[in-house]
Amino acid sequence: MQNSHSGVNQLGGVFVNGRPLPDSTRQKIVELAHSGARPCDISRILQVSNGCVSKILGRYYETGSIRPRAIGGSKPRVATPEVVSKIAQYKRECPSIFAWEIRDRLLSEGVCTNDNIPSVSSINRVLRNLASEKQQMGADGMYDKLRMLNGQTGSWGTRPGWYPGTSVPGQPTQDGCQQQEGGGENTNSISSNGEDSDEAQMRLQLKRKLQRNRTSFTQEQIEALEKEFERTHYPDVFARERLAAKIDLPEARIQVWFSNRRAKWRREEKLRNQRRQASNTPSHIPISSSFSTSVYQPIPQPTTPVSSFTSGSMLGRTDTALTNTYSALPPMPSFTMANNLPMQPPVPSQTSSYSCMLPTSPSVNGRSYDTYTPPHMQTHMNSQPMGTSGTTSTGLISPGVSVPVQVPGSEPDMSQYWPRLQ
């Protein structure tokens, strides 16, 4: 039975679970980093996980050691009161100082060594604690504590007292930064006198190289990059290397530039699409467009005044059976039934097929058609009795279509119309 579990990581490298990497692998990681390889490249070359490479390099940059820390136990506290007071002093002298600059000053002034120097995250935590204590304490208590930490007896009751030896409130920041720059020169002199001055200088240079600022491109470089971006948004590694040799930039910087440029292009394309949609959409909808001609068919113009009344309900007709019959029939052209047409008796099958359309009241044959006459024609229609054979009435077949029909004066039988409509 094995005491430890061995495995293979996602890159194909072998590791022992819970145990640190061998010293030979750690040394190779540092050597590759000094030669300029990126952590992701080191991870692929040595088949070590990216997190492990970053952790080893980060500890090497901070402490200069590649040895693993002790497994188990607690780390001794490195942010001692003396170190905290120095950090507060540096922050007062130059409020814009960075944590890694404070760390360098602690090393250069001999406050800490490589073994007990606090990390950048520890210094940031100390600065946050100082800021929170400043908010919790009152103004007087804060000034007393700062005077105690600074070891001075001057008056701290006013704002300019934060910067000793100065009279203009805006000047101390520059003086403090100048003092810090002077301390940086002392850093070089002190570290050069040490035993491991060369190694420390190499480590600091490598650290500065990794902690780079934003790349500033010249106009020629920007023009070359934009020209390549117009050709393709995704250049391959050969195109990037050719462009890197042409404009004297690292291939990694060119790759990052193209990634950022593609993101910018997507944002601009989104804005262009929004403007295009806004320009195509009308600002207001016309009133006429809300009524579609496919839904509402136009009603033909009436030929006679009587045809303006298109349904039985508008003429005072309360018989719903006839109203439904007229509205359900398709529109037909106007025609006239003459008196000489043969009077065919209704076929029983045809009569039964339209039995649902006729009223059940037996008085329908005896009703006159003056009910369908509009009010303004009552006088004219009353002067001509319906009993004469020459009287013409208008029957409504569908809305908007008038059918003048000659009705025999002897017997106005409704059943004569249905064979004609089939």
Rank of each mutant, 00 (worst) to 15 (best):
R59D: 05
A33G: 04
K86S: 09
P68Q: 03
C40V: 09
N124V: 01
F15S: 02
D115A: 15
S6I: 15
P22F: 00
A33K: 09
E101W: 06
S132T: 12
N114H: 12
T113G: 12
A139V: 11
L11T: 02
D23F: 09
T113P: 12
R67Y: 08
P76T: 04
Y143A: 13
G110H: 11
P81D: 07
I87L: 08
G110Y: 09
G64N: 04
E133W: 09
S4I: 10
I45S: 09
G110M: 08
G51D: 00
K55Y: 03
P68V: 00
S65M: 07
C112E: 00
I117M: 09
G18R: 04
R26Q: 02
L127E: 06
A99S: 09
S54D: 01
Q135W: 10
A37P: 01
S54A: 06
S74V: 01
C40R: 06
G36D: 07
L146G: 15
A131V: 10
I102T: 03
H34L: 14
E101Y: 08
C94G: 12
I123W: 02
G18E: 03
V8C: 06
F15Y: 14
S121K: 05
D115H: 15
E133S: 12
K75Y: 05
C40H: 01
V48E: 02
E82S: 10
K75T: 05
P95M: 11
W100P: 07
A131L: 11
R77L: 04
K55W: 04
N124R: 11
R128T: 02
C52P: 00
C40M: 06
V16R: 14
R105Y: 09
V14Y: 13
L127M: 04
Q47V: 02
I66F: 12
R38P: 05
R103G: 07
G110L: 12
Q2W: 11
V84R: 10
L32Q: 03
V111E: 05
P22T: 02
G73E: 01
R128G: 04
D140N: 11
G73N: 02
V84Q: 07
M137S: 13
I29Q: 00
C40L: 05
I29Y: 00
K145H: 14
R44V: 06
L149D: 15
R105P: 02
M137H: 12
V53L: 05
N50I: 06
L146W: 13
Q47W: 00
S65V: 04
A33E: 05
I87E: 00
I102E: 04
V83N: 08
N17A: 15
D140G: 10
V126R: 04
L149C: 15
C40K: 07
Q136A: 09
T25F: 04
E62S: 14
G138W: 10
S96N: 12
P68D: 00
I45P: 02
R92M: 12
N116E: 06
S122I: 00
C94R: 15
I45Y: 13
K86G: 08
N114S: 11
Q2S: 12
G13F: 03
G73I: 02
F15R: 06
S122P: 00
S24C: 12
S4C: 11
Y143L: 11
R26W: 00
P39E: 04
T80C: 04
V126T: 09
R105H: 09
G72D: 01
N17T: 08
S132L: 10
I97D: 08
N116S: 08
R103Y: 05
G18T: 00
C52S: 09
Y61I: 09
S121I: 01
Y61K: 15
L32P: 00
S108G: 14
S108C: 11
K75V: 05
G64D: 02
L130P: 06
Y61T: 07
K134T: 10
N116H: 12
R26E: 01
V78D: 00
Q2N: 14
A70M: 08
Q135S: 12
G141E: 11
D23C: 10
A99V: 02
A70P: 14
G72F: 03
N3P: 13
F15E: 03
I45L: 11
A99P: 04
E82F: 12
R147E: 13
A131D: 07
Q2F: 10
V14G: 06
C112K: 05
I102P: 01
S49M: 00
D104A: 12
N50D: 04
I97W: 08
P20W: 02
R147M: 12
C112G: 06
